[in-house]
Design a protein around this nucleic acid. Sequence first.
DNA 1: GCCGTTTTCGGCCCGACTGTTTTCAGTCG
Length: 587
Amino acid sequence: MPKPVQKEEIVSLLEEIGTLMRLAGENDFRAIAFDRAARTIESLDDDINKYIDDHTLTDLKGIGKSIANDVYEYAETGSVPVLEKLRDQVPDALIAWLGISGMGPKKIYKIHKALDITELSELKEKCRDGSVASLAGMGEKTAEKILKSIAWMEEFSARCHIDEATAVAELFLEKMKNADGVKEISVAGSLRRALETIGDIDLLIAADGKDAASLMERFTGLDGVMEVLGQGETKSSVRTDEGRQVDLRIVSPAHYPAALMYFTGSKEHNVAMRSLARGKNMQLNEYGLFHQTDDKKADFDRPLPTQSENYIYRHLGLGFIPPELREDYGEFDLAADGKVPELVELSDMRGILHVHSTWSDGKKSIREMAEACIERGYEYLGLTDHSQSAAYAGGLSIERVKQQWEEIDALNREYADKGIDFTIIKGIESDILADGRLDYPDDLLAEFDLVIGSVHSGLDHPPEKMLNRLMEAAAHPQVHVVGHPTGRLLLRRDGNKADLNRLIEHASKHKTAIEINANPRRLDLDWRYGRKARECGLMSAVCPDAHDIKGLDHMRYGIGIARKSGFTAGHILNAKTLADLKKWLGK
DNA sequence: GCCGTTTTCGGCCCGACTGTTTTCAGTCG
Ligand SMILES: Nc1nc2c(ncn2[C@H]2C[C@H](O)[C@@H](COP(=O)(O)OP(=O)(O)OP(=O)(O)O)O2)c(=O)[nH]1
Ligand SMILES: [Mg+2]
Ligand SMILES: [Mg+2]
Ligand SMILES: [Zn+2]
């Protein structure tokens, strides 16, 4: 029996093979096969070791005999011959060079071979001293561009949080939308899909051909544009002062729907759509959906009607797929059967859960937070300050809890007297202690109307132990919601590696919800667990985890993740009316 | 390397921009 492996190990193993293959100049389709296999393993929601023990990996899509045997071999021996051979051929250090924009596998391998260098520092040196420019197919500009790209890479991170990207996008939208000739304008790319982190910001404009050039000029000349990375007739890219890349694509109004679909992606969704089209003797690109010519190219003289994205899905026998679902992560199965869920919307939300006040580490009083909720049209606020062990965050002693309840009671009476239809719910975000117990005696916990159990300490516990803590909390009769289950901080700190598929099964069984923490630094539970969660009938809650008033406006990002998860309003606790929520909490 | 109610071999998404080239490869979206 081979020793158990972690899913993540296999994923990075396959990714490394694929990447090194490309660098080694292998057939790209072979490399793509390894990438695809990695994606399949990554999306597995049961134990990979079962497939390894039973030798059934080839049941999975994109995994054939060859890759399956590589994985079995790895599980047995800890190494794979094909990878060892590739490592001999291509130094691992070259993988870092792929982060330099404008540098792909061909250039990297060529420079590495011709100049016998592998380190980034050496590459910089050889760009400066003219060695790179003297290579065939390269020149002065090549070397300059490499140096510039390395500088960008070292100064700015490749991806950013979604709130930062949203702010950049809104600024550019504002500055472009009233320009002469703009007929339509939209955010596209990962931001439109509400991905948890954003690489660059993609904008699409519909305009007549005569206006395109002046719009491009306007875009590349905007305040805050530090550098123009490229400028053509239909698309341009710039870098902002903050180091974010913004791409603009301009198409004529007739092409706008197809272009919006293309530019929204994801790449994997696009590839799947285009393959589907070919399978039906049609060709899909950013200009539309077309019948085929005899040599299976797009016949631009024979377009199908595409007045909206929806038309394109229809022609391909699919229901409309909302942008958030376009990740090639199961949406085609849903859309083919007409089973795309009616996704939850921000306007479905009736109340706010998981908010901190000055009683613990929040910046605003209960009254201030409550009034901000009222202004935003919410019916209730589930106040959840930190519990007593969270000394670092001003966690509440039992005595303070009781004092807080008095303040809440007084505020609720005041709202009732004034005829304001708003209720503050007595809640707590209780630490899940190292042994899985909660942070107050059960009889006190029972007096709260809302208990969120979250891990804030012992973050380095091994996966199995962490899972046990989370499962124990989920099974605790007084716990309603498990908070930010992995504890990840996007772009900063990986979350714990507990098997969340098992937590989801367990929580569903005990009728405990798992939150989607809407803070753009967390967005945890991750949307990739949505399918599993829906299968298990898990409830969730979209929680701002707000420590100040601005934090309440993070709800939109949490809703994005809830939609990516495939959740309807029926899956979300705080889409319930207060009466229904109370019924659920009191179960 | 993977896959198949049009196939077990021959496809695998498709177009824009750049730089170095003299007709296109490489990279990116
Ligand atoms: N058909 C096709 N479309 C692509 C390809 N690469 C990118 N696109 C489309 C889909 C992408 O969502 C869109 C924008 O590209 P980006 O590189 O900005 O990717 P995206 O925004 O999805 O992710 P990001 O957060 O920017 O890394 O362009 C491709 O290889 N083929
Ligand atoms: Mg993008
Ligand atoms: Mg882009
Ligand atoms: Zn917390």
